[in-house]
Design a protein around this nucleic acid. Structure first.
Lengths: 355, 355
DNA sequence: AATCTTTCCTTAAACGGTTAAGTAAATAAA
DNA sequence: TTTATTTACTTAACCGTTTAAGGAAAGATT
């Protein structure tokens, strides 16, 4: 069976191509009888319109792009889920692109979008994205862009984030109140707004608690797991090592636990650990890990919903549509005052919506 | 600046549309001088060909679809990574669709592909996919399909799997050798080949070790976390509860640990636990979790590479191209003989390639 | 009876590329 | 010199839709 087109249906039913097209799209100037006949026939021959012909003509692709640094951690997995749910509901298609934390790839990915391949873009930038002319250029072409999580401040459009500053503040305060007096802050970038906000919250909390905020306590990690292991091991092996540590990205938690195991540091007695993470296993780690959980699914959903809103009404000003969805602090054993971790275990499963 | 097309370039350079098209694609019957001029100009005006016009004419979309049940666990995240890496290298685009374990959605997703939206499909079927006419129909249209992980046996095409039978066998043997004599096997489907193979390996191992394989030890879990919690709790609270448990899907590990914690079962002393999982946190769980790790990234990569091979040479017979990539058994504390777990900890980090 | 509407359908021109077929000029072969 | 070949381009059809514009027939209005 060859591919069935509108032209074929027209021939078969003795009607014109235009009539078929309009009948299928419920055009106003087609008789009810004809509509029924056409639709019934189209169904019977299993007609599926060619999306590319339609996209070409309408200059709309019904497709969005999602550009992510990676999809290894659970944040982006969940975000994709949220995006996909909304897209499927709206009848949109989702192209996925990974920049693998490389600015070069991000640039070439966005360059391709100039072609009109997608109607809109959802993105989270790489750690390398300091120069943003490629994004600016796409934006200038009028393609709606919604950032989520890792936003680019220089582009004037909607940004879906969580309350990173407050989260950094909350988690630091929590560690201070749990008795830490030297807290290391692990980050992966000095430029990403998300990292800057979290560390700003951290610094503010230190100041508010009359503590000194030392630059040497800010530790810049890389994308290389072994390097990170070595670095963290070095930090935690110092005489004046931190007794509290904040990992601002998920993947570092495994490394920290591994280092502590290997050099014999007891969590939380010797060192307290908290992590920005969406891992479902946090609760069953040894010891269970205190986390700041981002609303990943919600953020993806919100970002997608907003993008579609922008695609549907062209006059929407995305600039004014940014959303901040609060994170949750899950206090568990890894950050708890010495002594009570085992006994008061149950009580410690505190869940606090950060505000 | 309006959108720049081949037509515009032709006008600007005083050449015909055909010349521009052929010059840009390095056609053989265009003069070197002209090619240079055209390419230089195209670059200078930042020309990007309209992919939909090209797709329409060439009847090729340079796009593949990835259809997954979900993207919550690390298996599919890593698989996507593998797929995307190959696709990006080959200049293909990746549409992602989630069936959310619903046959209905899977059907409607595949139905859309009849339109020629994608050149090929990579898929992992839902737990509900027993009827497969929708896949058959797509396959009959000549769209290459490569299954990975959750394959559909009835469709005669390439399947990228891991050695599920051997993995089930290996992990069961391991538990038996660690002293278990009643092993529960948690599964999510009685139909999915992947589940059947793993459980077949489990049963074979029991028989080879002269043990009885009881149907009551096969536990069918659902997609609902709370239901699973209740079910597993019930099983583990019985008087004649298992002293070994195999979770054939990743997400169940958290539930099992939670149940054990809640009803006071000590892993591995009271019960030994192993899980088919790619979680990076397995090593730092409490206790560290013995896992069968699937080569997720590799599987994604291989599946994608194979699909592109099929797309490039039309005469390739996908039927003969299935690949089995072995899993790895990581033996950790959760499945270890009583007593030695803490002391011989280091030695226990055994990693065995299953063959 | 003549004109105006309305209804329902058709014609044909897009959309932006690709490509088979044709052609004019320059070069080579007879 | 005539004919064949090569080179470098153009013309025009085509991919499958959408849609503005037009038109014939029937019914309504004057």
């Amino acid at each position: 069976m060859s591919i069935i087109t509108i032209k074929q249906i027209a021939r078969d039913l003795g009607l014109s191509i235009a009539t078929i097209s309009k009948a299928l799209r419920d055009g106003h100037d087609i008789g009810e009888e004809t509509k029924k006949r056409v639709r019934a026939y189209a169904l019977s021959v299993n007609y599926t319109p060619n999306p590319y012909a339609s996209s070409l003509r309408k200059r709309k692709s019904k497709t969005i792009a999602v550009v992510l640094p990676e999809v290894t951690d659970s944040f982006f997995s969940k975000a994709i889920n949220g995006i996909e749910v909304v897209a499927q509901m709206k009848g949109y298609h989702v192209l996925i692109y990974l920049s693998h934390e490389s600015l070069l790839r991000e640039q070439s990915i966005l360059k391709d979008f100039q072609s009109g391949r997608v109607d809109g873009v959802l993105m989270s930038i790489t750690t390398e994205t300091e120069c943003n002319s490629h994004i600016q250029e796409l934006h200038a072409r009028g393609i709606p862009i919604v950032f989520f999580d890792r936003v680019c401040n220089e582009i004037d459009t909607a940004k879906i984030t969580t309350n990173d500053f407050e989260s950094g503040y909350a988690v630091t305060s929590h560690l201070l109140e749990s008795g830490c007096n030297k807290i290391g802050f692990l980050t992966i970038s000095n430029c990403l707004p998300i990292c800057m906000k979290r560390s700003a919250g951290y610094k503010k909390a230190l100041i508010d608690h009359h503590m000194e905020s030392k630059e040497s306590d800010m530790i810049l990690c890389s994308n290389n797991e072994e390097e990170n292991y070595t670095l963290i091991k070095k930090i935690l092996s110092q005489k004046k090592r931190p007794n509290g540590i904040i990992a601002s990205v998920e993947k570092l938690s495994t490394t920290i636990y591994q280092v502590c195991k290997d050099i014999g540091l007891q969590i939380p007695n010797d060192i307290k650990v908290v992590c920005f993470s969406n891992q479902s296993t946090a609760a069953i780690l040894n010891p269970s890990l205190t986390t700041v959980t981002q609303p990943a699914f919600e953020m993806g959903k919100t970002a997608a919903a907003l993008l579609f809103k922008a695609l549907e009404k062209t006059n929407l000003d995305l600039t004014k549509e940014s959303v901040i969805i609060p994170s949750t602090l899950h206090i568990r054993e890894s950050s708890v005052l010495a002594g009570i971790s085992k006994t008061k275990n149950k009580l410690l499963q505190k869940e606090i919506l950060i505000s």
